[in-house]
Nucleic acid binder design. Structure first.
Length: 582
RNA sequence: GCGCUCGUAGCUCAGCUGGAUAGAGCAACUGACUACGAAUCAGUAGGUCGGGAGUUCGAAUCUCUCCGAGCGCGCCA
């Protein structure tokens, strides 16, 4: 729609440029939608921007531009206003064209080819598989999946990946936790209370019980001489002692069986949970494969060859300070083990090797201090700084009424994503999650969400969609003719200002999608949908749609149907259903 | 202490690469169903955009500085 004005405006500017009145043309044209009706449908500030380089006063320049505008079937008039704004008023035909465009493009309305098939690697959630996903992870899932949909809609080829941290110490702690519960299941009492630094959740007990069913008592011997933990502080060292004991007593093979039992079961649960939430991945990337495939060694070898490393205190360090990081970072510890950072360097390098020139990572906001070092490593490995984009997602803060609920995975007192989905439903959860900018804290009040779920904005939007379909049902019952898509009405009768407001909003959808994609902000779609639904409800309450006059009726139905189509397209981007009845 | 993010109506939040009188939803108050779904709508009230200074035709938006909040600063992941 902006092209209706942008093209003639651009012609006028070029005309003045050739005449020598404008020494310089703007890099791009910006058209605003003024808040006040008196300022027209679209406004340009180009005269204000060009006044300096042309040495002319803004109003004088605006006048010249207005005079050079070619005539257009879409533009009613162009007025000068304020310090030098150009205010454009559109003809009804411009709005009527919106309805026809929506119907012509259907499910593809709002899509575009901005990305031109560019490949984007999108990594999100990637929670450690040490327990079920909680509501904080749900936010990342909803945000990432919606962003993937939006980017695909804009012509990008998006590859979604979940990075599985299956190699770290946290997994060892899980294995130890499962083992202790296993002893209890087998009827063997622990010589000390279950450690607080181990995973306490009920799910650990369940995994242990199933593991006992398949493995039997063959691991029991390792529980016979458990290390004395008396007097030891319940913390990292205590679990390390336990892990060391287990590895020694069980042997590598049996230990890895125990390790795998926990990992596989939890991972299966996470996959199932996300799939049920409408979140799909193209690949699940195990951290262990980096180790086993030698990717870590080769990435680090590259850093060493490039002269970006040094040894100190028996450890291998990366000079990340050369690329703006606060301090240098350890890649390989004194004990020879690689750090988590080392595998992350390898992981990002490996993504690049797979042909992804563009990587978008979504991390919890508490990881923001981690960005400079990863960015540094990519630069040291010769990649463009812009190759990696990190989006931070604040964790959701969960409330039950006034009471804040803590979400420590180890303590096991968290609300799972699965529980949330069951309580409020997928639609409400998906919509609610993207109703805020990702980098803002999200207060999620369970009591409100469960008790007053009908107050959730998602119902407001879905209701607007259902109302349109209700019109069709009504028309059918009364034997009235309805537009059938093939024979779209000419839309001559649409001329109510409220109809133009709606049509103008329909025009805005593609612009909003583009903006959401560019800024990586799905919440823009959610806000847009609320606005479109509100305008529709207003129109619906003020205007009778199913009137006797057939021309008017068909036009209004076509407009309503275009609204429903646009609502459905937008909801689909957010992974929310568009019901025809509620 | 250093770094990142943030501070907009009673509450929760929008505000598009600075644009013309700062918006929405809840909550409060007043109205609209013998009418296509009242899960809705119309209206009233509510803000020195944390304080101050600067940049310019023009600042919630950019810069600086204070105040306040959250997070991060490990040979953890």
């Amino acid at each position: 729609m902006k092209n209706f004005v942008a093209e003639p405006l651009w012609q006028a500017l070029q005309e003045l440029h050739q005449q020598g009145i404008l020494p310089q043309l703007p890099a791009h044209l910006e058209l605003d939608r003024p808040k006040q009706q008196a300022f027209g449908h679209l406004a340009s500030n180009v005269a204000l921007l060009l006044s300096k380089s042309s040495g002319k006063r803004p109003r004088e320049l605006a006048e010249a531009i207005a005079g050079a505008l070619p005539s257009s079937p879409w533009i009613e008039k162009c007025e000068l206003a304020g310090p030098g704004f150009l205010n454009f008023f559109l003809r009804p035909a411009a709005f009527q064209a919106a309805v026809a465009t929506v119907h012509a493009e259907g499910e593809r309305y709002g899509s575009m080819d901005m990305g031109r098939g560019e490949r984007i690697h999108l990594e999100f959630v990637s929670a450690n598989p040490t327990g079920p996903l909680h509501v904080g992870h749900g936010r990342g899932a909803a945000y990432g999946a919606s962003l993937a949909n939006i980017l695909r809609f804009c012509g990008y080829e998006v590859f979604c990946e979940y990075y599985v941290n299956d190699a770290g110490r946290q997994m060892d702690i899980l294995a130890a936790s499962v083992f202790l519960r296993y002893l209890e299941v087998a009827g063997q009492a622990l010589p000390w209370p279950f450690p607080k630094s181990a995973y306490q959740g009920e799910y650990v007990r369940d995994i242990a019980a199933r593991f006992h069913e398949t493995a039997g008592d063959v691991l029991l011997h390792a529980g016979e001489a458990l290390p004395a933990l008396d007097g030891m502080e319940d913390g990292d060292r205590m679990v390390d002692v336990l892990i060391a004991h287990l590895k020694l007593r069980l042997g590598a093979e049996t230990y890895s069986r125990l390790h795998a039992a926990g990992l596989e079961e939890i991972l299966a649960d996470i996959r199932d949970d996300l799939a049920g939430f409408g979140v799909h991945y193209d690949n699940w990337y195990p951290e262990r494969s980096l180790m086993q495939g030698g990717a870590v060694e080769s990435a680090i070898a590259r850093l060493v060859e490039g002269g970006y490393t040094y040894s100190s205190g028996g450890a291998l360090w990366f000079r990340s300070t050369e690329f703006g990081d606060d301090k240098d970072r350890v890649l390989r510890r004194e004990n020879g083990a690689y750090t988590y950072f080392a595998s992350d360097v390898a992981y990002h390098w490996e993504k690049f090797q797979r042909g992804f020139g563009k990587m978008v990572d979504m991390w919890g906001a508490d990881h923001h201090g981690y960005i400079p070092r990863v960015r540094a490593s990519l630069q040291a490995l010769g990649q463009e700084d812009s190759a990696l984009e990190v989006l931070l997602v604040q964790f959701a803060i969960l409330y039950r009424g006034e009471e804040k609920i803590s979400m420590s995975t180890r303590a096991g007192e968290f609300v799972t994503l699965r529980q949330l989905r069951e309580e409020v439903g997928n639609d409400a959860a998906r919509f609610f999650y993207v109703l805020r900018r990702a980098d803002q804290h999200l207060d999620f009040d369970l009591e409100l969400a469960t008790r007053h779920s009908e107050e959730n904005p998602v119902f407001y939007v879905q209701y607007a969609h259902a109302r349109v379909h209700s019109l069709w049902r009504q028309a059918g019952e009364r034997g009235l003719s309805v537009p059938d898509g093939a024979g779209l009405p000419a839309l001559r009768t649409l001329e109510d200002p409220r109809e133009f407001v709606l049509a103008d909003l329909l025009w805005r959808f593609p612009e909003q999608v583009e903006s959401a994609a560019r800024e990586r902000e799905p919440h823009q779609i959610a806000f847009y949908l609320k606005e479109l639904a509100a305008s529709f409800h207003t129109y619906y309450n003020a205007t009778r749609i199913l009137v006797e006059d057939e021309d008017v009726r068909l036009d209004r139905l076509a407009l309503c149907r275009a609204v429903a189509r646009t609502l459905a397209n937008g909801l689909a981007l957010l992974g929310v259903t568009a019901p025809e009845q509620m």
